[in-house]
Simulated scan of single mutants.
Amino acid sequence: MASSVDLNADLGEAFGVWQLGQDEALMPQLTSANLACGFHAGDPLTIRRSVALAREHGVQIGAHPGFPDRVGFGRRDLAATPEEVYADVLYQLGALEAFLRPHGAKLHHVKAHGALYLKLHADPAIAEAVAAAVGDFDASLPLVLLAGAGGAEAARVARGRGLRVVFEAFPDRAYVAGGRLAPRALAGAVLHDPERVAERAVQMAAGSVTTLEGDTVALEAGTLCLHGDHPRAVENARAVRRALAAAGVQVAAF
């Protein structure tokens, strides 16, 4: 069992009058937050408010860059070249950093969003582009990648760029054979029972996950992600924290 684990969520994903998530209620339950940078979601005012909210609760702030796809919420794969991905990620890191400067704060980590996150794990050229953008911006920033077999190649690329890698697992998502994240289109891919999500979090802190096929596979993660757009995100977070505390696992930023 891990002695401590980080608890993160993807936040700041509102845009104009369009609201998403329960950021004010969820933020106090977290130790780190991945804030949208204006491409898949978020806008300057939302970014500013999200940074202030995270600072108020002592939550570490990570950048959550995605594809420029507001309509698809960044979950559609775009035919972007590695050069375009590099420029887009670098642009988004700079945008979020601008709102941290008035607070005298710096970025804590980088975690890609949605389709870009999945693509960098499947395409070494995209992984190289993301890692290059992070390294050129600030090589001390950890890059958050998928725990399990799916993150091995992306981790190799990132480490080749001199980046620190932190692996993450998803208690509110199902896994399939080999410890890979289940596609959202698959039945049962999203878990809706907070107590079941909490049980999964404890199992992940102990270094494994049970797949939809019923197999238990090793899965080492330094951070656990709860989806901020999940309708029961706050309930999930509270249940996870209770379960981890009962198991003797401290919740703390990596």
Rank of each mutant, 00 (worst) to 15 (best):
P124F: 07
A187L: 03
P142E: 01
G74F: 09
D136Q: 14
A149I: 04
L26W: 02
E168T: 13
T46A: 06
G228I: 04
E220V: 14
L30S: 05
G72V: 10
R184F: 11
S50T: 10
A152G: 07
A95E: 10
A36Q: 09
Q92P: 06
A147R: 14
P142A: 03
L11K: 15
G135S: 03
W18F: 14
G38L: 00
G38H: 03
A246R: 10
L163P: 00
G135P: 00
G248D: 14
C37L: 09
L107Q: 07
L26T: 04
Q22I: 05
E128R: 11
R159Q: 15
D215E: 14
A158V: 04
Q250H: 14
A132N: 10
I61V: 12
G214M: 08
A2E: 14
V166S: 03
T216M: 11
A206N: 15
A79M: 12
A233D: 13
D215Y: 00
L120T: 00
A129P: 06
A206M: 12
V134L: 03
R242N: 10
R70T: 12
G16N: 08
K111Y: 02
V59P: 03
F15Y: 15
V240M: 03
R75H: 12
A54I: 00
F67Q: 04
F73C: 05
G38I: 03
A125E: 15
H121F: 06
G151C: 06
H121L: 06
D172G: 04
A243H: 01
F254D: 04
A41N: 07
V89W: 02
P142N: 04
D138M: 04
Q60T: 13
V176I: 11
D77K: 15
V17P: 15
G148L: 09
L96V: 07
A187R: 14
E153T: 09
P183M: 08
F137V: 15
A98N: 11
A154T: 01
C225F: 04
A154I: 00
E97C: 05
A158M: 02
L141Q: 10
L11D: 00
H108K: 12
A131F: 00
G179H: 09
E56M: 14
Q92M: 01
G58F: 05
A25R: 03
V176H: 11
G58L: 00
Y175L: 02
D172T: 11
A155G: 14
G12L: 00
R242F: 06
L146H: 15
L143R: 10
P183W: 12
L163T: 13
V130C: 08
A174W: 11
P194A: 03
T81G: 14
A80M: 15
V5F: 07
F73G: 07
